[in-house]
C-alpha cells in the first residue's frame, strides 16, 4: 500500500467497519509506527511477565485542538501515560493505543499524530503492543480521540503519597501554565501561541536520572502536574497525608509571557494544566542533589523548590505572597478549562 495515496484521503465510516478499508487503515497505522509497534495482529498482545509487580494505568485524550505547538494529541497520549507510570517509580515498558476517529478527519492529520506517537514512544523507550481503531460519524466525536493504557515494571518499591513526611521540600521540575496558555491562545488567536509553547514531554528519562537518589529513599513521592494544575496536586497530597502544604508565590516558576497571558485571561497558573512538569516531595537533605540532577536534564533546567510539607495536621494549601501575606488556596470545584489533554 502506498502511504502517499492515503494522505490525500479522509476518514470514512468504512475505515472502521472491519472490512478492506479497515485493514488498509490498520496497515497504514502499523507502517507509520514502524518498529515502535510490536503487535502481532492477534486479538491480544502476549507479553513476558516480569518477576515482581507491574504498574498499570490508562488515560484518554481529547485535547482541542489536536495539533499545537511542541506537540499534538499523539505526543500527549504517550507522555501522559508514560509519566503516570514513571512517577510511581515504575519503568514504562508497554502501551496500547486506541483511536476514535471522526468521519472527515484528513489522513494527513492522522499521519502526523501517529508520527508523534512513534517519536515520543521512541524517546520514552516504550513499545506499542496493541491497538484499536473506531470510526464515528460527523459530530459524534471531535476529529480524533485517543486512549493509551500503559504497563510499567517496578525495579524497586513503588513511590506512594503516604510516604510524604512533614518537612519534605516540594520541588517543581519546570515552569507551570505554559501548556494551558498555549492551547487557549491557539484556540482564540490571542497572540501568545508562538511565544508560549506546550511543555508536553515524556519525563521518564529525567526521572530515571534520579534513580540513585530515589533508591536511597530520599525522594518520597512524585506526581506529574496535569489537569487541575499544581493546586490539585497539592490538595491531593494534603488530603492523603493530612498536613498543610505551604508554598511561596515568588518561588513559582512562571514564564513572563505566561504570567502576562494568565493575567489577561483571568486564570491562575497554579490551576492550569501542564503536560511536562513534575512535583517532587523530597527529604531536605537530598534537595541539592535532586535539583542538580534535574538541572542537568533538558526538561528540568528550571527546577526549583517552591515550598514544603508543614507539620500542621490539617488539610489545605497555603501560599505566601510577595507581601508576606499568607493566603489559602481553595480547591477548585470543577474543571476550570475543558479539553486541555
Amino acid at each position: 500500500m502506498s502511504t502517499t495515496s492515503f494522505l490525500d484521503q479522509k476518514i470514512v465510516l468504512d475505515h472502521g467497519t472491519g472490512a478492506r478499508l479497515s485493514r488498509e487503515l490498520v496497515e497504514f497505522v502499523v507502517d507509520v509506527l514502524g518498529d515502535v509497534y510490536t503487535g502481532e495482529m492477534e486479538d491480544s498482545a502476549m507479553l513476558p511477565v516480569p518477576a515482581g509487580n507491574i504498574a498499570l494505568t490508562t488515560d484518554s485524550f481529547v485535547v482541542d485542538p489536536p495539533i499545537f505547538g511542541n506537540g499534538d494529541i499523539g505526543k500527549i497520549a504517550v507522555c501522559g501515560t508514560v509519566n503516570d507510570l514513571a512517577v510511581v517509580g515504575a519503568k514504562p515498558e508497554y502501551l496500547t493505543l486506541a483511536m476514535i476517529l471522526e468521519t472527515g478527519l484528513p489522513l494527513s492529520v492522522l499521519h502526523q499524530v501517529l508520527e508523534s506517537v512513534r517519536d515520543t514512544a521512541k524517546e520514552a523507550g516504550v513499545k506499542i503492543v496493541a491497538g484499536d481503531t473506531k470510526v464515528v460519524g460527523v459530530g459524534e466525536a471531535d476529529k480524533i480521540f485517543l486512549n493509551t493504557t500503559g504497563v510499567g515494571v517496578f525495579h524497586r518499591a513503588p513511590l506512594r503519597m503516604s510516604s510524604v513526611r512533614p518537612g519534605d521540600r516540594i520541588i517543581l521540575s519546570g515552569p507551570i501554565g505554559n501548556h494551558t496558555v498555549h492551547l487557549l491562545s491557539v484556540r482564540e488567536g490571542l497572540g501568545f501561541e508562538s511565544n508560549v509553547l506546550s511543555d508536553c514531554a515524556p519525563l521518564n528519562g529525567m526521572i530515571g536520572e534520579l534513580d540513585a537518589v530515589v533508591a536511597s529513599g530520599a525522594v518520597h513521592s512524585m506526581r506529574d502536574v496535569t489537569r487541575g494544575g499544581l493546586s490539585a496536586v497539592l490538595h491531593e497530597y494534603s488530603s492523603a497525608v493530612g498536613r498543610i502544604m505551604a508554598i511561596e508565590e515568588e518561588a513559582l516558576p512562571i514564564d513572563f509571557a505566561t504570567r502576562m497571558a494568565s493575567d489577561m485571561l483571568g486564570i491562575n497558573p497554579i490551576n492550569a494544566a501542564n503536560e511536562g512538569c513534575l512535583a517532587l516531595f523530597v527529604a531536605p537533605e537530598a534537595v541539592d542533589e535532586v535539583l542538580a540532577t534535574l538541572h542537568a536534564h533538558p526538561y528540568g533546567r528550571q527546577a526549583v523548590v517552591i515550598g514544603e510539607v508543614t507539620d500542621r495536621a490539617e488539610k489545605g494549601v497555603e501560599m505566601t505572597g510577595a507581601d508576606g501575606r499568607v493566603n489559602t488556596i481553595e480547591e477548585l470545584q470543577g474543571a476550570e478549562l475543558p479539553r486541555l489533554c
Binding site: E188, G189, L190, G191, F192, S194, N195, A257, M260, A261, M264
Partner: peptide
C-alpha cells in the same frame, strides 16, 4: 479593549 486590543498589543510586543 480587553480582547482584541490586548491580544494584538501582546502579539506586537513579542
Amino acid at each position: 479593549g480587553q480582547i482584541c486590543v490586548q491580544t494584538t498589543a501582546a502579539d506586537a510586543f513579542f
